[in-house]
Write a protein that binds this DNA or RNA. Structure first.
Length: 804
RNA sequence: GGGCGUGUAGCUCAGCGGGAGAGCGCCCGCUUCACACGCGGGAGGUCCCUGGUUCGAUCCCAGGCACGCCCACCA
């Protein structure tokens, strides 16, 4: 064993070994308690990013911990076909090849996507392996697998039969590049500099007067069907009910009142364009206004725009503005910065368009999920995110589930020449309504998240009644990022409840967002991204895992390489203390025979660390967990215990040697879930290995008596430390004292005993006062009173100790 | 505009009602037979600001200020 631990090679070797020996494998029906994690499927063309790495570090830590505790653990994953994202990638590729999807046609395009996936897809699973994720890779699933597709079709038909899926013509977000509708959740907003144009619309009966509106999009003027003002707005009282002339096309439209108009904005008068603006659309529907459309799906002016047809919006805007200027209707034009919606994939400006789309009604579907969340049957961590999840589900609007993409699950909807729709899981022979056999399948595909919503059970074989589904549904938990709550987590919960009648998992861990070191979000386009594989190459998977866990404290955290270096130092320290022990144990075998002070003490410390660790893990507090591991290794095990027993190891003391091995084993077990590779490597060097560490049983806790031996001493020593004095101690007490308090932190002289005595007397007086107060004792919760009593006892003991 | 979160040592962050802490960085000293990815010692802080509650506040409450993330139909 070399003095410097080098993770390279070692980690890959263990990753191969664990997988080849089948130690990641899960089997249903073992009868053991299960711990199931259906890990979020990455995009099939995706590459590992920091979010994935953190997610895996958290989930794999828990999985390994449960595995060691004897649970049948199923850590499952696979790929998401990621509709628009994949289509976008392949389209870019086609562009480089000098062609386009339109040119080659849909059928050929889909073939090319599959080829593309075979070539470029699937690399991320290798990256999961490289992090040490102990997933059952044999059970990988893809959302485009035949079986999975069947589940998706079943879900659609199920919801349709319930009457919750319907088709409607509404305003939607349209991406002119991908030529598809998008949900609100697939947009990004960006601040853009633009202009706010104030235009006077003359009254039909008095062209010298009129209503001045403010617009950011003059190109949509030809589609105006009304002007709206806030009800009761004094400025426009004289206009309501009259007609104004829309510029350019010179149509007369009414001036109406609607409380959606904000009188504070612009002139307080809004031009109403139901065909091209979501708010105007609502107003239009409420007032039964016509829905004119002058912009087509390609983003250009269409045939309804008269002579503007075929122009871009910019060109049309110039022409319209010129027209307005000539007639003296341009009141003013001012610089205006506002946020515009963009397609998150191609960054094209979103066109709000009216379009015939499929929708999923949410009002009934979400109710059981809301109940489960409110009752805490599904729990988001931290609690702030739980509140947010409930709120976002409460306000969830109907879900636009159809997309006009080519890559995805085609809707199971067939249309006959008479326009009747037949909805079946597989192609029907004839139209359900008229019996026509000339059926055409809908060209639309489903929103990617429609299929993702089935992940926790579709990967287990649903809708078939498989052994896996029986054994592993519902699962234990899911880990994900905040922005995925509405897109995915909530949808898994309601679809699981709807289709199986049970929640898909009990806990959702919303992990930290790791920001770039400069505090901005990590993003490829900003150039602030960070490749975790590079970190792994430089520091090892263990260190990377450890570092990310350490960083996962609050909602957003800046990346710092120091955290990962700390992991590297921990691994190296552990490696070296193992060398010390292994080089000096002779032919001793691990056995716990605590006799001496040091041995009882380290047993107590390890046990204490274990309990703290378990406490943090149960609460999904990963950062404090790393802190426990770091300090028990450095401070307790290496600095104190190893130094204390070193001479006895050299001398061939059999008790010290056997116990050292046993204690090292115990330490390795505590560390393994967080840093699996280095611990397994050391474990393999220990004598008499019967199992791999990955399957070694989690340590049993010490008995209560052993646990309590050192607690009072620790407390007492703490008082001396605070007072800055060293008590006079016999040899054994001195060693305990050294163990609990770093002696150097206690100055031999100086210190302030009086101040400490004074403080303790104050504390005692306060506690006595509270406990003598009947209102406190009678009304405060029992555990608060008990805690106060304990404090009082402790202060008295501390006072006694210090007075001597 | 709304929600959530964060402001503590030069940096990244713990602590959250009675001691101001960790890791890195910095300074000084150590090739001590596990480890220089180490060991020993040290410097360094109005715990964002202002009020309030309390015997006592970095920690609780109110109001500011600054920053971040998420969300949102101000034309």
């Amino acid at each position: 064993m070399e003095p410097l631990y080098k993770p390279g090679g070692v980690e890959e070797r263990w990753q191969r070994t664990w997988e080849e020996e089948g130690l990641y494998n899960a089997e249903p029906g073992t009868g053991r308690d299960t711990f199931v994690v259906a890990h979020p499927p990455p995009n099939v063309t995706g590459a590992l990013h920091t979010g994935h790495a953190l997610q895996i570090s958290l989930a794999d830590l828990l999985v390994r911990w449960y595995r060691m505790r004897g649970f049948e653990t199923a850590f499952l994953t696979g790929y998401d076909h990621a509709g628009i994202s994949t289509q976008n990638a392949v389209e870019k590729h086609l562009l480089e090849q000098g062609t386009s999807r339109e040119e080659i046609g849909r059928e050929r395009f889909v073939e090319i996507v599959w080829d593309w996936l075979r070539r470029y897809g699937g690399t991320i699973m290798g990256q999961f392996r490289r992090l040490g994720a102990s997933m059952d890779y044999r059970r990988e699933r893809f959302t485009m697998d035949d079986a999975y597709v069947r589940a998706v079709m079943r879900f659609f038909v199920h919801l349709h039969r319930k009457g919750w899926i319907y088709r409607a013509n509404r305003i939607i977000n349209w991406c002119p590049y991908h030529e598809t509708s998008l949900s609100d959740l697939e947009l990004v907003h960006e601040e853009k500099d633009g202009a706010l144009t104030h235009v006077r619309y003359p009254f039909a009966d008095d062209p010298e007067d009129g209503v001045t509106i403010a617009t950011a999009r003059p190109a949509t003027i030809p589609a105006d069907v009304a002007v709206a003002v806030a009800p009761g707005d004094e400025r426009w009282r004289h206009a309501v009910g009259r007609k104004v002339i829309v510029p350019f096309l010179e149509r007369a439209v009414p001036v109406i009142e609607d409380d959606r108009v904000d009188p504070e904005f612009g002139t307080g008068a809004l031009k109403v364009t139901p065909g091209h603006d979501p708010l105007d659309f609502e107003i239009g529907r409420a007032h039964e206004l016509p829905e004119l459309r002058v912009i087509g799906p390609d983003g250009r002016m269409n045939e309804h725009a008269g002579e503007l047809a075929g122009l871009t919006q910019e060109e049309a805007e110039e022409r319209i503005l010129a027209w307005i200027r000539e007639r003296g209707l341009l009141v003013k034009r001012e610089a205006y910065r506002h946020s515009v919606a963009l397609c998150e994939r191609c960054k094209s400006r979103i066109e709000p368009l009216i379009s015939l789309q499929w929708w999923c009604r949410m009002d009934e579907l979400k109710q059981p999920a809301l109940a489960a969340l409110r009752e805490g049957r599904v729990r988001y961590h931290p609690p702030s995110q739980h509140r947010y999840a409930i709120e976002s589900l409460e306000t969830a609007p109907d879900w636009n589930i159809s997309r006009q993409l080519w890559w995805g699950h085609q809707l199971p909807v067939w249309e006959c020449p008479d326009g009747h729709l037949t909805v079946e899981e597989t192609e029907p022979e004839a139209c359900a309504e008229c019996g026509s056999t000339e059926l055409t399948r809908s060209e639309d595909v489903l929103d990617t998240w429609f299929s993702s919503a089935l992940w926790p059970f579709a990967i287990l074989g649903w809708p078939d009644e498989t052994a896996e589904l029986e054994a592993w549904y519902p699962g234990a938990l899911n880990t994900t990022a905040r922005e995925i709550i509405r897109l995915w987590e909530n949808r898994m919960i309601f679809s699981g409840l709807e289709l199986l009648g049970e929640i898909p998992f009990q806990h959702v861990i919303i992990h930290t967002t790791v920001l770039a070191a400069d505090g901005r979000r990590m993003s490829k386009s900003l150039g602030t991204g960070l490749d975790p594989l590079e970190l792994i190459d430089r520091h090892g998977a263990d260190s990377t895992r450890y570092g990310l866990l350490k960083l996962s404290s609050s909602q957003d955290v800046r990346f710092s390489e120091g955290a990962i270096e700390e992991g590297r130092r921990l691994a190296n320290k552990l490696w070296n203390v193992s060398r010390l022990i292994l080089a000096n144990v002779g032919d001793a075998r691990a056995e716990q025979r605590p006799r001496s002070l040091e041995e009882r003490w380290i047993a107590w410390r390890l046990d204490r660390a274990q309990r703290e660790l378990e406490h943090h893990l149960e609460a999904f507090d990963f950062s404090p967990a790393t802190s426990v591991l770091y300090h028990v290794t450095f401070d307790d095990f290496c600095d104190w215990y190893a130094e204390a027993i070193k001479p006895r190891l050299y001398d061939g003391d059999e008790d010290a040697r056997a116990t050292a091995l046993a204690n090292l084993e115990r330490l390795l077990k505590l560390l393994h879930p967080a840093i699996p590779h280095v611990t397994e490597e050391i474990w393999s060097n220990l004598p008499d290995r019967e199992t791999r560490l990955i399957l070694a049983p989690w340590p049993e806790p010490l008995g209560t008596e052993e646990q309590h031996e050192f607690e009072p001493i620790r407390t007492g020593a703490e008082v001396f430390r605070r007072a800055g004095v060293r008590p006079t101690l016999n040899e054994e007490q001195e060693r305990i004292f050294r163990a609990v308090v770093k002696p150097d932190r206690v100055k031999a002289d100086g210190g302030n005993v009086d101040a400490e005595l004074e403080r303790l007397r104050g504390e005692i007086a306060r506690a006595e006062g509270m406990l003598a107060n009947e209102r406190f004792v009678g009304n405060a919760p029992e555990e608060v009173v008990a805690a106060e009593r304990e404090k009082l006892d402790r202060y008295r003991r501390e006072l006694d100790a210090l007075s001597n």
